[in-house]
Design a protein around this nucleic acid. Structure first.
Ligand SMILES: [Zn+2]
Length: 296
DNA sequence: ACGACTGTTATTAC
DNA sequence: CGTAATAACAGTCG
């Protein structure tokens, strides 16, 4: 589940393990992931070879790499961005060769791209192939405000959102409305804000919008804090996956983190005890408490 | 074995 | 324009 919190924790982790070496080679093993790219895949190698990976950043669910030219004073004086998205099942991790270790010379399944630094590789795997990779940073332009940005506080809900006939849960998952919320955290936010997921946006009160504005970063930042405190497996290779689904029961028993409503159909609401209900909205499961999330 | 279900989002149709 | 359905995939689980 790469929603905003997982991507944020991933980016923080990767920034702690940046390779000092320059890029030797890029292998684009899934051309499909470049479907939002304009240039040819071959150009990636010529433009980025010899560059150093300066840092990772994030916007919504997108992660962004910045590449600095190597000593050779290349054609690109400014850091070049490479933007990626993990889709549903994408993973991104550094793999270091260690002779004698079980993963020495490992070949990974479902790779989308591999960045080779010599003594380590940055591996992007994605079985379902919903993810993407591009040097076209314009893909970020359609994103709405990010709940972890400093300017979130000054954001006001635009008329096209407050006047919309869509259900609020569907709108919260619209990346042009809010960048970073996905199917899990949309349900979690609405439970905390005590708003029915099927409520039409245009029927929400100013106080509803105010609570949403407050609850979205609250839920997100708590999740980031928890994810950052765990020792996570970013590769998804171990049996217990500690990044994706770090909020569910597995791996949470001793960490105290659990989603309050997501995937909890029939269980008592942690706030009022009523059974959590499941419904389908926009072909996705929604979980909510019918007692403390009333329709307006 | 089979069908339900899964963390997303372009694209298409109205 | 805004809204909704669908397709693009491969895996897991009961
Ligand atoms: Zn409740």
């Amino acid at each position: 589940m790469p929603e905003l919190p997982e991507v944020e924790c991933l980016v923080r982790h990767l920034n702690r393990h940046l390779p000092a070496e320059a890029l030797r080679k890029i292998s684009i093993t899934s051309p499909r992931h470049l479907r939002r790219e304009e240039g040819k895949p071959e150009k990636w190698g010529s433009d980025l070879r010899g560059c150093r990976l300066d840092r990772f950043s994030r916007r919504g669910k997108f992660w962004i790499m910045f590449w600095k030219p190597g000593s050779g004073r290349g054609n690109h004086p400014d850091p070049q961005p490479v933007v990626g998205h993990l889709g549903m099942t994408g993973r991104l991790f550094f793999h270091r060769e260690r002779s004698g270790s079980p993963t020495d010379g490992a070949v990974f399944k479902h790779t989308a791209a591999i960045f080779d630094f010599g003594s380590s590789r940055l591996v992007f795997t994605d079985p379902r192939r919903f993810g993407m990779l591009t040097r076209n940073a314009d893909v970020l332009k359609s994103l709405g405000p990010d709940p972890m940005d400093a300017d979130w506080c000054s954001m006001t809900w635009p008329d096209r959102i407050t006047g919309s006939s869509r259900a609020i849960k569907v709108t919260l998952m619209d990346q042009s409305a809010v960048a970073g919320l996905g199917n899990i955290y949309a349900s979690e936010v609405l439970h905390q804000a005590m708003i029915h997921p099927a409520a039409a946006c245009k029927n929400l009160t100013p106080d509803d919008w105010h609570r949403l504005h407050h609850c979205i970063p609250d839920v997100i930042q708590k999740a980031v804090g928890i994810g950052d405190s765990l020792s996570l497996d970013f590769s998804g290779l171990s049996s217990v996956d500690r990044l994706f689904y770090y909020g569910t029961r597995e791996g949470s028993s001793d960490d105290g983190e659990v989603f309050r409503v997501y995937d909890r159909e029939g269980e008592p609401c942690p706030r009022c005890g009523a059974p959590i209900q499941r419904m389908i909205q926009a072909q996705r499961s929604t979980f909510f408490c019918p007692a403390c999330q009333p329709l307006p």
